[in-house]
Design a binder for these strands. Structure first.
Length: 161
DNA sequence: GCCAACGTTGGC
DNA sequence: GCCAACGTTGGC
């Protein structure tokens, strides 16, 4: 038996580049620019309706800023074919695009940032790649227990999202 | 197909 | 700004 689908994810972003508030402003955003195969494979597993924790990296303190939802399943990332883009990939074949993106929409801003240190203290998060130093994965699966614990810490309820 | 050099991520 | 981690690249 293959493992049950996760249905919950975590997306990393540097808020100076694109923050959760930016997602709220935009209303909907193509999650493009992912250029790591493992992360891409996770993107391709996403289904509309899946929840995505929104993690702010590269700031002090890093942490979870909000939760969004997948609005469109994986489709070709247009930036891979744009020579002007920093995410241009000249080796990607338009007949078989190498990189994918999904669309995400905001669901709920966290009432406060749930910091990385606080996540480390949650037993449900033990062993998560997010907490390992040097992890370059920008898209990763999150278990039901992990998302429930994270939401609970800031007073949100998974059932009401 | 091995593996050293390189580049990038991201916490500290 | 440092540097550990680690994926990617390219020479052989």
């Amino acid at each position: 038996m293959p493992p049950a689908p996760t249905r919950h994810w975590l997306l990393k972003s540097e808020p100076d580049v694109f923050s959760y508030a930016d997602l709220v402003r935009a209303g909907r955003e193509p999650w493009n620019g992912v250029r790591n195969y493992q992360a891409r494979n996770f993107l391709r597993q996403m289904r509309p309706g899946d929840l995505c924790l929104f993690y702010h990296s590269g700031v002090k303190p890093p942490g979870l800023a909000g939760v969004g939802r997948v609005a469109r399943a994986a489709y070709p990332d247009d930036l891979q074919f744009d020579p002007e883009s920093a995410h241009f990939d000249p080796r990607s074949d338009p007949a078989d695009p190498r990189w994918s993106m999904v669309d995400v929409v905001p669901v709920r801003a966290f009432p406060r940032l749930l910091t990385l240190d606080e996540l480390r203290a949650l037993p449900e998060w033990e062993g998560s790649p997010l907490l390992r130093r040097g992890t370059r994965l920008s898209v990763l699966p999150v278990s039901a227990e992990q998302i429930r614990a994270a939401l609970g810490e800031v007073g949100l309820d998974l059932g009401t999202l």
